[in-house]
């Protein structure tokens, strides 16, 4: 008897994406460039985060027609975003047979308290996290993949680094704790004790952990990989740069050869203009996307 939508099947697809780059695309043409450049998946969205940031307004799930067009253009997995807590957008994305749903803080949240109950879906979910407690709460809700958030649409890597250090550093601390200390730690983390204990025993999250938010160069991608990410999401960094195809290929190569500085030096050369960045520190707290999600 075949079983569909088991946790093993859901996390299994994330396993296959490891060591790869997932690229934000807004149409079929960009999706084809991403696939030809070696992306392991594409994220279909209406506007890249840099544009959402610049144009403001409410950011929602993409038009299904756009998503279909992208699905028809490529053979690699197609992901799409729904708003935090917007389970009907998630139902629609499942009906469209997207390969992964990103319940994303980049879109305007639909619920200020509850995230989507992801156990109700056959399609797996990826969710953002800024720290270990947030990551474990998402996993408890059924997320099959985590991405540290960073600050999307800035081209500034600093928040991605902060969040990875927070998640991976905290995991390292858990592994050194006495068993009885884990109960109090679970309370502090506001996460289920069983998950906290699993992480303490295994020294990692129980699901694949990518990083996102602010990656603009091959060096940024390799930095994330050296800090312990399983792979990277690149949003505005590729299609808001001067030569998207060349930059996309370079970031893919850097993600594979992240430990080889000579290869990194070669692929970083002559890429043209990177996306125009915004320093994350200069943003008003009300403009931050990373604080969305609870």
């Amino acid at each position: 008897m075949a079983e569909y939508g088991t946790m093993r099947v859901k996390t299994g697809l994330a396993e296959m994406l490891k060591g790869g780059v997932i690229m934000d695309v807004v149409d079929a043409e960009q999706a084809k460039i991403a696939e030809a450049s070696g992306a392991v998946a594409v994220m279909a969205l209406e506007r890249v985060p840099a544009d959402i940031r610049a144009q403001g307004g409410v950011a929602r799930m993409s038009d299904p027609e756009k998503i279909r067009e992208i699905q028809e253009a490529v053979t690699i997995p197609v992901m799409a975003k729904c708003r935090i807590g917007h389970f009907v957008e998630a139902q629609i994305l499942q009906a469209l047979e997207v390969d992964y749903i990103d319940e994303s803080e980049v879109l305007t949240p639909a619920d200020l308290e509850h995230h989507v109950d992801k156990w109700q879906f056959t399609v797996p979910f990826v969710c953002g996290a800024t720290n270990l407690g947030e990551a474990l709460r998402r996993i408890a809700e059924g997320a099959a993949m985590i991405r540290t958030k960073g600050e999307a649409g800035t081209g500034d890597i600093v928040n991605a680094v902060t969040h990875m250090r927070a998640v991976f550093g905290h995991i390292r601390k858990l592994t050194a704790m006495a068993e009885e200390e884990l109960y109090a730690e679970a309370k502090k983390l506001q996460a289920p004790y069983e998950l906290v204990r699993w992480v303490a025993e295994h020294g990692r999250l129980p699901v694949v952990t990518f990083t996102a938010g602010g990656i603009a160069t091959p060096a940024d991608a390799a930095l994330c990989m050296q800090l312990g990410a399983d792979g990277v999401f690149v949003g505005s960094g590729i299609f808001k740069s001067g030569d998207p195809e060349r930059r996309a290929k370079a970031i893919v190569e850097a993600t594979t050869h992240f430990k080889d500085p000579e290869i990194l030096a070669r692929v970083s050369a002559g890429l043209g203009e990177p996306m125009v960045g915004i320093s994350a520190a200069s943003l008003d707290p009300s403009q931050l996307l990373e604080t969305r999600g609870w």
């Binding site: 008897m1 075949a2 079983e3 569909y4 697809l13 053979t75 047979e97 390969d99 399609v123 797996p124």
Partner: peptide, 15 residues
């Protein structure tokens, strides 16, 4: 044949 069984919703485990 690539993706012969279908997209992720058709991914499965079986004996």
């Amino acid at each position: 044949r690539r993706n012969a069984f279908g997209r992720q919703v058709a991914s499965f485990e079986a004996d």
